[in-house]
Nucleic acid binder design. Structure first.
Lengths: 325, 325
DNA sequence: TTGAAAGCGCTAACAG
DNA sequence: CTGTTAGCGCTTTCAA
């Protein structure tokens, strides 16, 4: 790999001049500029970004930490962040944390030590305390981490209420809820919305709420158990679409017809939900918009570190599909 | 952020000694070591990796470039690479290229300029020529890029033949094929395998082959058209599982029962294939193993640059599920 | 308009 | 066992 010195030598100038040409900064004679440019292209020179980062203390790189790269929700989010990053000349990288606090902190440390300029985290284990000593700007996405961290989320409670009301409106008499892991902020909110709507129903039982941990497998198992012990359930509000697919599978394996015997409504609006049969009715988050906005907020933070902390909440919208009547 | 100097000052030693402590290299008195360690923890010092990278010319980071992060096949692959990277103390990052040559080269350049130690690419647009002037070790995964690049792939042709033979064995009389984009190496191989098995059948028509571009939407549309003009088709070999889901959807929208009216077999073995109903019979690739092996090969390359170029081909295995009888 | 030189934070001879 | 120093490749004063 040629360095700036090689270029300087070849062009018969100093490295400072080459630097000026590369960065289009300061004065440089048109003629020498041409000479330098020629040397650059002849040597196929590309500046070493590590050296640049060392000097500037930044790397023009941002990262997104997601808990589960296999849940399509996160790749969709990643796409948005990536696009916005590219538009703003940031290199984008994606890291998978398994919602494992150690992996999470490992990445955050590693990235900061690489002078990453900012990090967007989807996390339920990062805390204000664990972030002490971290200086990179961080934005929380999808889940609230701390009041001190800017965040982009949706109106989970609202969305959940809408979902449950819709099931009622469709005639469901016994509505259950498959929720996420209880340490995730949006699990609580979605569960809260469900409870709001059912707590005064005389049919409501606390055993109508079971956890699927935001995972397909667990949701499927949980649903089978639920429906075996509570065959009267005729509607399920599922806290995310991935689990929704599992609930569907469970229902079908138990010989139940969807939506005739049991109606299902999910949350997220991932595209997988419409790819399958029956397609899943869902509370759709503006995924792309959220990812974009998180990236935008992050870049703002990077450029002006002492912004006011913002918490933005997006609306979710009901998308009617085949898993409901 | 404290630097090595701050630590040195606080501990009353030179930066060299601090460096020795950090890296556990050379001799250092137990007592001074303790002092240094104390200073480190008091200052919450973490070495600046950019400076290290600049010195060493490497970053302990590897990257994976995938064409479509929304196709679950790639996240699954990514998981494997990530795990192996972590085991070997490499930071892992994932980049999405959309199979867009510019994005691909952009990433490759950007990563090389960041002193990334190695790159695994799933690509159909990178060529030997476009890689001129690139010095990072590269390993091709899933698709062959050039004879000069080590690669990890599967026996696509073989797998395709097995798939088609299985459909025949199940009684299919007219078997169609939904293939991938024609610039991808494995599209040709899978198509080749299909052709091998059907070219001598008197029923075979070239219009039984249509492209779905490895995308859900396109595969669905293509299948609808296919089945409208060729209602006699009773079996489809689909070049990947994601398209398989689309084919399923198309069949169902046309009112066809799977597998009663039409049987479907996919390729890849992504976990989505078993999550849906009916689950998709498929030719399963050893995804995790392949990702792991690619990472291993890459790290070998990094450590000993002039290895012999290896091309490894894994077997695929038939996994019978509900989309076939 | 250009060059010399300091320095970003770290490591690795080399000398003591 | 420890410190001094050069240098990784680049940018940016400061002088000329």
């Amino acid at each position: 790999m040629p360095t700036i010195k090689d270029v300087a030598k070849m062009a018969g100038v100093s490295v400072a001049t080459v630097s000026r040409v590369i960065n289009n900064s300061g004065y440089v004679n048109e003629v020498t500029k041409k000479r330098v440019e020629q040397a650059i292209s002849q040597l196929n020179y590309r500046p070493n970004n590590v050296a640049r980062s060392l000097f500037h203390g930044r790397s023009q790189m941002i990262a997104l930490l997601v808990p589960d790269i296999m849940n399509p929700f996160f790749p969709e989010l990643a796409r948005a962040v990536e696009d916005f990053a590219k538009l703003n000349d940031y290199t984008f990288v994606l890291c998978n944390t398994d919602d494992n606090p150690e992996k999470e902190m490992h990445y955050i440390y590693a990235l900061e030590q690489k002078s990453v300029d900012g990090i967007i985290v989807v996390s339920s284990t990062v805390t204000e305390k664990s972030l002490q000593g971290i200086h990179v700007p961080i934005v929380a996405l999808d889940r609230i981490v701390s009041a001190k961290l800017p965040s982009i989320t949706v109106k989970n409670r609202d969305g959940a209420r809408q979902a449950v009301r819709y099931l009622k409106q469709l005639g469901c008499k016994r509505i259950a809820h498959i929720c996420g892991p209880d340490n995730v902020s949006n699990t609580k909110e979605r569960l809260g919305g469900y409870i709001d709507e059912v707590k005064n129903e005389e049919w409501f039982l606390s055993s109508y709420v079971v956890s699927g941990d935001y995972q397909y497998d667990k949701a499927m198992d949980a649903t089978k158990n639920l429906l075996k012990s509570h065959p009267e359930v005729d509607g399920i509000f599922v806290a995310n679409d991935l689990m929704g697919v599992g609930v569907l599978k469970a229902a079908q394996e138990l010989g139940l017809k969807v939506p005739e015997d049991i109606q299902i409504i999910g949350f997220d609006g991932i595209s997988l939900g419409e790819k399958i049969t029956p397609s899943i009715t869902t509370m759709k988050q503006p995924i792309y918009e959220m990812g974009t906005r998180a990236a935008q907020l992050l870049i703002q933070q990077i450029n002006e570190p002492n912004q006011q902390v913002q918490h933005e909440e997006y609306e979710v919208t009901l998308v009617k599909r085949e898993s409901t009547k």
